[in-house]
């Protein structure tokens, strides 16, 4: 059950540090290739019982659905933990814990790389790299490769080999370039990503935009038309069956991906015509508007 956001509890930095430490402990359990179910349950319950957790429904839900046998639930929880750890204000105790867990993660990473078998293992590794402050670039590259969902054993072996090397970033960039070139559904070029990022779109969304979605769109439209990130629950397809038609008639759908909360989606939309402030008013959606390119 979600309760009202308790800003008083949240503003107390020692509470934030306490939750961060619990998140770090759970992350260390999840980093192992074979997750220890008992340790997982203990770490999970600690987080679910924490007062601040009640303030974040999406986070609470991701942790409560976490299971040792379900890698997708682990990836989703790791995504939430990474966001939480990046957001919470820590203190000396949480900094000390971070250093300790960073070491654990670094020790586990080679084992995780060598055990990559399924595509889902790559996505888990993306979250592991995302956790490490100096490995975010690898996380981005690996995430983009993983998003192609290629079932090519040779590519998978190349990725493994690249990750075990000191020049992993360079090698992953080459693999990504090859994958993009060979793929019919290629992602957009770096200069288009720059336009979207300068408008405020996060790389993890901008990087998912495909060439096909930009057909017949000029750079000027990309720079100046209203650009929105719309988050909605899958329930909308039942409650408002006309929703998708409305989107397709008035906007260009640049990309869509799963949202951070369970059963939600994020859609990056470029409005076709002049601004229509009321376009989404009648729908149960959250809308974020990006600034115009300067």
């Amino acid at each position: 059950m979600s309760s009202d956001f308790d800003f008083g509890e949240f503003l107390d930095e020692s509470n934030q540090s306490e939750l961060m430490i619990l998140c770090l402990e759970l992350f260390a359990v999840l980093t192992k290739f074979q997750v220890d179910q008992n340790k997982l349950e203990i770490a999970k319950v600690e987080i679910l019982n924490n007062q601040l957790t009640q303030n974040f429904e999406g986070f609470r839900s991701a942790i409560s659905y976490l299971s040792g046998g379900d890698k997708n639930s682990q990836i989703n929880a790791m995504k939430h933990i990474n966001l939480m750890v990046d957001t919470l204000v820590g203190d000396s105790k949480s900094t000390e814990k971070f250093t300790e867990i960073e070491e654990v993660v670094n020790e586990s990473i080679n084992g995780l790389i060598e055990s990559i078998d399924l595509h889902v293992d790559l996505f888990k590794l993306v979250q592991v790299y995302n956790f490490l402050p100096n490995k975010k670039e690898i996380a981005i590259l690996l995430g983009r490769i993983a998003d192609y969902e290629l079932k090519d054993d040779e590519m998978m072996e190349n990725v493994k080999a690249a990750l075990l090397r000191d020049d992993a970033e360079v090698l992953l960039s080459k693999i990504l370039a090859n994958v993009a070139e060979n793929s019919a559904a290629g992602f957009i070029s770096a200069n288009i990503i720059d336009i979207l990022q300068q408008r405020g779109v996060n790389f993890h969304i901008a990087g998912l935009v495909t060439k096909e979605s930009l057909e017949n769109l000029s750079d000027e439209q990309l720079k100046n038309n209203a650009l929105l990130l719309v988050n909605f629950s899958e329930d909308i397809f039942t409650s408002n069956p006309e929703f998708l038609d409305a989107i397709q008639s008035d906007t260009h759908v640049l990309t869509s991906t799963s949202g951070i909360d369970k059963d939600t989606f994020d859609m990056l939309l470029l409005l076709k015509n002049e601004r229509r402030d009321d376009m989404f008013d009648k729908y149960p959606v959250k809308v974020k508007e990006y600034r115009v390119f300067k």
């Binding site: 309760s3 009202d4 303030n55 974040f56 429904e57 966001l83 974020k288 600034r291």
Partner: peptide, 14 residues
Amino acid sequence: MSGSIEPIVPGQVI
């Protein structure tokens, strides 16, 4: 009425 974490970028009008 739970909270949400939102990244912010320079120039963004909150």
